[in-house]
Every structure is written in C-alpha cells, then in structure tokens.
Amino acid sequence: MRSVSGYTKTELIKPQRPWKTLSQVELATAEWGDWYNHRRLHGEIGHIPPVEYEANYYTALTKPQVTTTI
C-alpha cells in the first residue's frame, strides 16, 4: 500500500497542486484509483489491467479440472 500512496502523490497530487478544495482531491484520487486498477496496462502481468488479470485468475480457478487415469 505504501508504494501506491507514493505513486498517487507523485503522479497526481504534486503535479496538480495547488488544490482548491478537499472535494477536488477526493474526486481526482477516486478517478486515479479507477484508472490504476481498471485501465492501466501492467507489464509484469502481460500488459493487461490488474482487474482483468484478477478476473482471469478466478475464472481459471472455477473451471473444472480434467484428469485422466491410465
């Protein structure tokens, strides 16, 4: 969590200051969080958004496993 907080400050809070209201900061932070989790392409997981990777992971867990016996 600490690194996400650092990214938020570096990429969002500091470049856009001065902020006029707390509401502006809250809205911008929510929008940034949505982008970070739903649209950002993450190189370590195949250049797909984290939410897509997570959905694929849970889909793979719920598929029945095929086993063969010889």
Results as ranks from 00 to 15, higher is better:
1 M>E: 14
2 R>L: 11
2 R>H: 09
2 R>Y: 08
3 S>L: 07
3 S>P: 06
3 S>Y: 04
4 V>H: 09
5 S>V: 05
5 S>K: 08
6 G>C: 09
6 G>M: 09
6 G>A: 14
6 G>R: 14
7 Y>E: 13
7 Y>I: 06
8 T>R: 07
8 T>D: 00
9 K>Y: 06
9 K>N: 13
10 T>E: 13
11 E>D: 15
11 E>S: 10
12 L>R: 02
12 L>F: 03
13 I>Q: 04
13 I>W: 11
13 I>V: 14
14 K>F: 02
15 P>L: 06
15 P>F: 07
15 P>M: 10
16 Q>A: 10
18 P>E: 03
18 P>M: 03
19 W>Y: 03
20 K>E: 06
20 K>I: 04
21 T>V: 01
21 T>H: 05
21 T>F: 03
21 T>W: 02
22 L>W: 06
22 L>M: 11
23 S>G: 09
24 Q>E: 15
24 Q>N: 11
25 V>A: 07
25 V>M: 10
25 V>Y: 01
25 V>G: 01
25 V>H: 01
26 E>I: 07
26 E>F: 01
26 E>W: 01
27 L>D: 14
27 L>S: 15
29 T>Y: 12
30 A>V: 09
30 A>K: 15
30 A>L: 14
30 A>P: 00
31 E>M: 13
31 E>G: 03
33 G>S: 13
35 W>R: 10
35 W>M: 09
35 W>A: 06
35 W>L: 05
35 W>F: 15
35 W>V: 02
35 W>H: 13
36 Y>A: 13
36 Y>D: 00
36 Y>K: 08
36 Y>I: 04
36 Y>H: 12
38 H>T: 14
38 H>N: 15
38 H>R: 14
38 H>V: 00
39 R>C: 05
39 R>Y: 05
40 R>G: 03
40 R>H: 05
41 L>W: 01
42 H>V: 04
43 G>I: 00
43 G>N: 02
43 G>K: 00
44 E>C: 06
44 E>H: 04
45 I>P: 01
45 I>V: 12
45 I>R: 00
46 G>E: 01
46 G>H: 01
46 G>S: 02
46 G>K: 00
47 H>R: 08
47 H>G: 05
47 H>P: 00
48 I>S: 02
49 P>T: 06
51 V>P: 00
51 V>L: 03
51 V>G: 00
52 E>W: 05
52 E>A: 12
52 E>V: 14
52 E>R: 13
52 E>F: 05
53 Y>G: 02
54 E>R: 15
55 A>K: 15
56 N>C: 05
56 N>S: 09
57 Y>M: 11
57 Y>A: 08
58 Y>I: 05
58 Y>L: 08
59 T>E: 11
62 T>S: 14
62 T>M: 10
63 K>L: 13
64 P>Q: 04
64 P>S: 06
65 Q>S: 07
65 Q>P: 00
65 Q>I: 12
66 V>R: 12
66 V>H: 08
67 T>C: 08
67 T>S: 14
67 T>P: 00
67 T>R: 14
67 T>N: 11
68 T>E: 07
68 T>A: 08
68 T>N: 07
69 T>C: 04
69 T>V: 07
70 I>W: 10
